[in-house]
């Protein structure tokens, strides 16, 4: 099932709706890479609230997406990792090093606002 990508101001929000196959994750990567260019987005939120498991493949793909988008000039934040899912990731030794994470959508938006803030020119 394809992941819908919404445009919210300067950001893109990819809201994962159901358990994803590997192909869906790869598709998500390709779509985000393209749309960051189309919409000149500075930040991307990937909401993984519904994911029942984040295994080594999903971790590697999410990390890959974030690093690829960084090279395209956009910050990525992963939001909504459930406590049990996080615990299983820790047990597996999986980390999202170098990738932003936040509790939920709201915190994710706040994270991006902070990370993509342009340097004020008038000293504000």
């Amino acid at each position: 099932m394809q992941v819908p990508i919404l445009k919210q101001g300067g950001y893109l929000i990819a809201s994962i709706q159901s358990v994803l196959s590997d192909a869906d994750l790869v598709q998500l990567r390709d779509n985000l890479g393209e749309r960051v260019g189309t919409f000149r987005s500075r930040g991307v939120i990937i909401d993984v609230t519904v994911l029942d498991v984040i295994d080594s493949f999903a971790t590697r793909t999410l990390r890959g997406i974030a690093h690829m988008l960084k090279l395209r000039g956009a910050e990525t934040v992963i939001v909504g990792i459930q406590p049990d899912v996080a615990f299983a990731m820790v047990q597996l030794g999986l980390t999202l090093e170098g990738v932003g994470t936040a509790l939920d959508l709201e915190e994710g938006l706040a994270y991006l606002d902070l990370r993509t803030k342009r340097t004020p020119v008038n000293g504000n």
Binding site: D52, V85, F87, M89, Q91
Partner: peptide, 14 residues
């Protein structure tokens, strides 16, 4: 319990 169910699902996934 919920945490173990997720651990089991993750192990199966791997």
């Amino acid at each position: 319990n919920g945490a173990d169910v997720t651990l089991i699902a993750a192990a199966i996934s791997e």
